[in-house]
């Protein structure tokens, strides 16, 4: 865990939750978005690049799959196709909608 904190967290501006329930409650749903396989994921590249400099003998990271999570707040289920149209591009993204 200590390694993951060093790798992923900017302690000045971020907090980290591991296997925690959704951070924002209540919410109507959340959308998980990640890059399609085969497309360059710059976030992944930067993390792996940084990882190479801090890797220890105990922990080696072979690969990671960053996922962006967007929470939708409100009192009713929104017009998801319209929202998704502005948030994801099927050319490069995979996504899932998880309702609360």
């Amino acid at each position: 865990m200590q390694f993951l904190h060093r790798l992923l967290l900017n302690p000045q501006s971020e907090e980290m939750h591991v296997n925690a329930p959704p951070v924002i409650v209540p919410h109507v749903c959340c959308i998980n978005i990640r890059m399609r396989p085969g497309h360059l994921d710059l976030e992944r590249e930067y993390i792996l690049g940084y990882c190479r400099h801090i890797t220890t003998e105990d922990v080696q990271i072979a690969d990671i799959k960053p996922v962006q999570r967007i929470y939708l707040l409100g009192d009713r289920i929104p017009d998801m196709p319209r929202i998704l149209r502005h948030l994801v591009n099927p050319v490069i993204h995979e996504w899932e909608v998880v309702y609360a």
Partner: peptide
Amino acid sequence: RGAVQIGN
């Protein structure tokens, strides 16, 4: 899809 590149 194949025609889209992403820059680094």
